[in-house]
């Protein structure tokens, strides 16, 4: 197939992102970011939402983009940081914290791997005016690493370790990402999944089921695991 990168609609967003920037952003659009983003996953969510730790001062004004990620980064002896690559981690696991997190942080963009359920978009992200961007691949660690220009600060590094700490990054032309869910809660993964599901019955045709079944699992291949 010819180069599909040039054919995709592509936008650059300046951060913190304004509500009107997200208006009309369609699923499937390729996005690059300029500004400040922060990482946050289970370690940070537990710290803030369950243990009641204060958000880092000024975080909400600085950035409204939460990346489900931990960087391949090292802390040097002089206290400086070396960042190699960054790659997303699967977001569906953080569903239970997202409503409270969006409320307290004011985040408008969630970046991660694999998206979240259509119900989470409808019930949590859409009411908060937030969209979901998926990373590509999912291993574009080097391309994303290139987009990180500086480490602004790292919070809870000692307590949570490199992988779970909150890293605040200055980024430039940071991407590519794909719009997975828009302000109306449409989902690219759901749309694509439905197209693929239509072929599944034919695929299994004539293959008899194994003698021993398994408990507690779906037999419907149209279902998702998340």
């Amino acid at each position: 197939m010819a180069d599909s990168r040039a054919q995709r609609k592509t936008v650059r967003l300046t951060l913190p992102v304004r509500d009107r920037d997200l208006d009309g952003l369609e699923i499937g659009t390729v996005v690059y970011l300029d500004g400040v983003i922060y990482t946050g996953r289970e370690g940070v969510y537990k710290k803030v939402l369950e243990e009641g730790a204060d958000l880092p001062e000024g975080l909400c004004e600085l950035s409204n983009v939460n990346f489900h990620c931990s960087p391949a980064a090292a802390v040097e002896d002089d206290g400086s940081y070396t960042v190699g690559g960054v790659t997303a981690t699967a977001s569906f696991r953080f569903s239970k914290w997202m409503r409270a997190w969006l409320e307290c942080s004011g985040a408008r963009i969630i970046i991660g791997k694999g998206g979240m359920s259509i119900e989470d978009y409808r019930d949590i992200l859409v009411p908060a005016g937030a969209i979901y961007l998926t990373t590509v691949g999912y291993g574009t660690g080097a391309l994303l690493g290139r987009g990180i220009k500086a480490v602004r600060k790292v919070h809870w590094l000692e307590e949570l370790g490199n992988a779970q700490a909150m890293w605040i990054f200055e980024v430039e032309n940071f991407g590519p990402f794909i719009v997975e869910s828009d302000l109306d809660g449409n989902s690219l993964f759901q749309q694509q999944g439905q197209l693929i599901n239509a072929n599944l019955e034919k695929l299994y045709e004539g293959l008899k089921a194994p003698a021993l079944s398994r408990y507690g699992e779906t037999d419907d291949r149209k279902d998702e695991l998340i």
């Binding site: 990620c69 391949a72 190699g84 080097a142 290139r146």
Partner: peptide, 8 residues
């Protein structure tokens, strides 16, 4: 760049 292809 001699950087990891994937950060995971």
């Amino acid at each position: 760049d001699r950087r990891p292809m994937c950060a995971d």
